Simulated scan of single mutants.
Amino acid sequence: MAKRSAVKSKQPADGINPRQACPCGSGKRYKACHGLSGGPIEVPVGRPFEGLAAERELIALREFVPSATAPLTLTVETDRKVTLASVLPMAAAGLVRADGSAFVGLQVQSRSSDVSRDLARALRWAVEAKPGEVLSVVGPETEDGDRERLQDMLEPKAELEPTLHSDFAWWLPEDEEPTGEVALSLERANQAIMPTERIGPAAYWVDAGDRAHLRWVRPEPEEQLMFALARLSARGELGLGEGSRYAGSFRAHGLLVPVWDLDREQHAREWTTPAETLGTRLDEALTSLENTPLTSEERRARDGLIGRQITIR
């Protein structure tokens, strides 16, 4: 009788068990996701803007602010002024106008495992490109040693002061008329825009049509913030007053973004003071956690809040 030989399953070269969850965060097993290619995988950077004072505004402009621009304070030597944009024509990664002014887009078509590195590559291009050039896509391909990140090119303590626009007319100089694909992209973008106003640092009022929302990128670690929100929820203090309701939260680039439903009949500025007051209550709740653990009622409130979370990668 022929002797049976044991066949051992091969471990991937990157050392990841095929049955384990894929490190990319898709929720699939590795063998059914990035393991299909048989190659190594770069785990996405969970908090790409960490260390920058502008972190929260960068997240807001990338994830849900439709039309906004903000000047950048660079640490690299250049005479060129570079403006950060929520989105550029045809979702370009960067462009340089004929007058030499440069723009870098946050909401782009492609990215690698590190959003910060993508933006740094686009920013480096914008500093060095010739007038009239456009950078369509910053892809995942990176030359060996190309590890410059946004933190290497921006002044870390510089805040970001976005200017919000009601449309995308700023895409073009005042004396230039849109043509071709740019004109079509501009028309579509203007049709899809949702009225948005900034009512505080990283706090944005958004008119979604049937209702309005407050989307607020918070700086605290997620667990501590959830504890504080739970404490306020158990006390009935989690709203912004009449016409408001806590809707849930989503994770974006390592930070939590709580969301409130608001009465859209009220003007955005009418929510500025209630948001400031809620911020004060949150600060007090966070401080109280240092000495007072959650009660059983507050833990139940926390569990309910966690059930209303989603993640945006």
Rank of each mutant, 00 (worst) to 15 (best):
P162S: 06
A183D: 00
N190W: 00
L184I: 13
D152G: 01
A169I: 08
A189Y: 07
P173G: 10
E181W: 09
E161Q: 05
L184A: 10
L164W: 13
L154E: 03
E174R: 11
P156K: 15
E181Q: 03
E181H: 07
A158E: 10
L160R: 07
A183Q: 14
P178D: 09
K157R: 14
P156Q: 02
L186P: 04
A169D: 03
D175W: 03
E155H: 08
E159H: 12
E176Y: 12
S185F: 12
E161A: 03
W170G: 00
S185L: 01
G180A: 14
F168Q: 03
W171L: 05
T163P: 00
E181G: 05
T163C: 01
L172E: 04
H165K: 06
E159V: 03
N190D: 12
T179P: 01
A189V: 00
E187H: 12
S185G: 04
L186H: 03
S166L: 10
G180P: 01
E176D: 09
A189H: 11
A189G: 09
L184H: 12
S166V: 15
M153S: 04
D167E: 11
L184Y: 14
D175H: 11
R188F: 11
D167M: 04
H165Q: 09
N190E: 03
E155Y: 02
E161S: 13
D152N: 04
L172M: 11
L154K: 05
P156A: 15
E176R: 15
H165W: 14
N190M: 06
V182I: 14
L184R: 13
N190G: 05
E187L: 10
A183V: 15
E177A: 11
W171F: 08
E159C: 02
L186Q: 13
E176M: 13
S166G: 05
